[in-house]
Nucleic acid binder design. Structure first.
Lengths: 279, 279
DNA sequence: TGGCAGTGATACCCGGCCGGTATCGATAGC
DNA sequence: GCTATCGATACCGGCCGGGTATCACTGCCA
């Protein structure tokens, strides 16, 4: 399988339309049809069902789509990491507006290491793991289970429980504690998918924490978030423990097979906060 | 970057010789030289330093080699998984000679699940994670830190401490307990690398548990292994706790982005042994 | 020190594959 | 049943990947 075939297949699988996919790829439709047909022939299995009115993924196609996206991401990441091997700085991805305390402690401790590199911060509104997959970052601070750690190496740093954040004028604002069922409300904010689109559903669409807090202040939304956000809570917002919400684990994550000494040092320093001895 | 370029580069990087690499690839040497030069040109960085007597990897080349191996593995895995999407069975990789108790419990519990598939066992002498990377298996039972879980999704199942295994006639056989420093001996057995070669060093070369136990029986080797092997210990062997050896964690691992319902079920069943509620 | 063996780079040619245009065949909507 | 839409097919041309022949450099050895 050549990457050209994977790129072509991903385009068709995402557009579900040969014409638009060819357009997006900057080629004509016939060679695209031919390449997909060749790919199917070599794999010995149909990836798409097509009528002249509708294109759909087969089960095999769905599997290959997921794999192909990961592979193409790995390839661009490999290119970037190879090109920037002499990069003077270590790029650390973290969530903008997240807990700056842990981050500050980590950066300070790492800076004190002998041979520490300059650390460049890449602050993300959401999907903090994506820069790791495409090589824009060397290491990231993620939050399970919100962030996807699929295909990454991780080391847990800290676990905490979750709170419902809402306006103090919200009907639930007086509660001592809540359960997930209580907050399964139409006001629950929705975050964008990695491609920038929003899944259908009730609730306002937000794209960063600032916007979320503003929406909550205005009584237009509520959210369930880890404890740390309480620190930076705006006037007029309340945080109420949600006793049965899944625990949130802050982890440090890096690409598998990382050969970077700097990443190893940073991870060691980060995990050292919890366990003094690192095996 | 095309997969052809990656295949070519990996061949040269492993052989460190254009002629042999071209041979291995089944092409002539000149097109290989040209392709590598094009790759370097497009990346804008040298991957190899060559004199007419010696070829060596640059730092960038070392990075790309690691990335390229992972990518090529992911591609063959993607092919296999796409082709075998309608495979009636789930392939589970496990270490031959490992704890069959956990395995039996897991298989029984999974078989009781509604909609459970037949489970095909792939017993490995070593490097149990490799079938996961190249698509020969859907899920594996691994042992950290012995097995590499880089680029895999894992869920811990069980943690245990380690024991030194030796012949009862060994000078240390009478000890109540040992430390790592005590067992850092020339008799420590050596396992092969994934490519089948052995790193230099003292100690006998073994390639499976049966052979290892035989060597230990003969007083030719000792080994440090997790507790479970005590169950199947041969006559004349003793197991002595090594108090400061790193804990061994048995994990269930599967490829990232797995879309298989069966894998999800098996993982849920496996983790259910420990925690009754699964988030 | 000069010849020689070994190795990677270069020059050049050929054939296959990728991408283009033109067109067909099928399907859904009116 | 006409038409618009869309994927498949047919066919052609240029580029690129792979081949052979040869050059240029290095280390070894007499």
């Amino acid at each position: 399988m050549e990457t050209r075939e994977l790129r072509y297949f991903v385009a068709v699988a995402e557009e579900l339309h040969f014409g638009r996919a060819a357009d997006r790829l900057g080629i004509a439709q016939p060679p695209l049809s031919r390449t997909i047909a060749q790919l199917e022939h070599r794999l010995g299995i149909a990836l798409l069902t097509r009528t002249s009115r509708k294109v759909a993924l087969t089960e095999a196609g769905a599997v290959l789509l997921a794999e192909a996206r990961a592979i193409l991401g790995a390839i661009t990441a490999a290119e970037r990491r190879t090109r920037h091997v002499d990069r003077p700085a270590l790029v650390l991805a973290a969530k903008a507006g997240g807990s700056s305390e842990l981050l500050a402690k980590l950066l300070d401790a790492y800076a004190a290491e002998p041979g520490a590199l300059a650390v460049e911060l890449l602050l993300c509104k959401a999907h903090t793991w994506l820069p790791l997959l495409d090589g824009r970052a060397d290491v990231a601070i993620l939050h399970e289970p919100y962030d996807s750690t699929a295909g990454l190496d991780v080391e847990p740093l800290h676990t905490e429980s979750q709170f419902a954040i809402m306006s103090s004028s919200h009907p639930l604002a007086g509660a001592r504690q809540l359960r997930m069922a209580d907050v399964d409300l139409p006001e629950l904010a929705r975050w964008p998918e990695p491609d920038g689109s929003y899944l259908d559903g009730p609730g306002v669409e937000v794209h960063d924490l600032t916007q979320l807090f503003q929406m909550i202040s205005l009584g237009r939304a509520i959210a369930v978030m880890p404890e740390v956000v309480r620190a930076g809570l705006l006037e007029g917002l309340v945080a109420i423990p949600v006793v049965d919400a899944p625990k949130v684990t802050t982890v440090i994550a890096w690409p598998p097979h990382s050969r970077s000494r700097a990443v190893a040092d940073l991870v060691r320093v980060a995990t050292g906060f919890n366990s003094p001895v690192h095996g």
